[in-house]
């Protein structure tokens, strides 16, 4: 688990510099401190458990390769959030991944392999529906919606994580909700 102490330790300049130079121990310390957080983020953004390992690995490899560009203006966690969001954008762009999702969804929908209790199965179906619709949203709308609605960030947190003003987060989240409701056949009320 990520602990405050662990995060403080790995954000020291010495650890970051060592990791940038390819020091295995320093990289391992950063990975261990942030891996759960990045995995949760990636999972919330994609809804696909089978892709989490690959994406987490890509996020950290990209981060270690680009550590020289990390200025320390933001926290390392925020910087990793941005890298993960970019990797997830690529993931959504990948037609191959989408097709895999279609396979999974269609086999679940027809009850081909159902090894979960009824309630779990229903929740899985609901998640599948939501993520299918999320996959059709523009990246920026999807990211705002996921940060606010699924990751549970408040407006300030989402604004910092996404690097956009609060009003933009608010607008994008509402617009995403409108489009999701339309895609899912759910009534939408603009209050």
């Amino acid at each position: 688990m990520t602990t405050r102490a662990a995060v403080r330790d790995v954000e020291s300049a010495a650890v970051l510099a060592a990791a940038q130079d390819g020091d295995r121990a320093a990289q391992a310390a950063i990975f261990e401190a942030y891996k759960e957080r990045v995995a949760r983020q990636v999972f919330r953004m994609t809804g696909d458990a089978s892709s989490v390992d690959d994406l987490v690995q890509e996020v950290f490899i990209s981060a270690f390769s680009a550590l020289g560009r990390f200025r320390g203006d933001a926290q390392l966690g925020t910087w990793l959030y941005t890298i993960a969001a970019n990797r997830v954008r690529n993931w959504w762009d990948s037609q191959r991944r989408r097709r895999r999702r279609e396979d999974i969804a269609s086999s679940h929908a027809a009850g081909d392999v159902v090894a979960t209790p009824e309630a779990d199965f229903e929740a899985t179906q609901q998640r599948e529906r939501l993520y299918r619709a999320l996959g059709e949203l523009p990246d920026k709308l999807r990211e705002s919606f996921v940060a606010r609605a699924i990751e549970g960030m408040n407006l300030h947190e989402a604004s910092a994580a996404l690097g956009v003003p609060i009003s933009t987060v608010s607008y994008r989240t509402r617009r995403a909700e409108q489009l999701l409701c339309a895609a899912l056949g759910i009534p939408w009320r603009d209050e």
Binding site: E36, A39, R40, F43, R44, G47, A49, V52, D53, E122, A123, T124, Q126, R127, R129, L130, Y131, A149, I150, G152, L184
Partner: peptide, 11 residues
């Protein structure tokens, strides 16, 4: 639907 996504345990 969002609640179902929120409560899904991370792998």
């Amino acid at each position: 639907l969002v609640q179902a996504a929120r409560t899904a345990p991370a792998p």
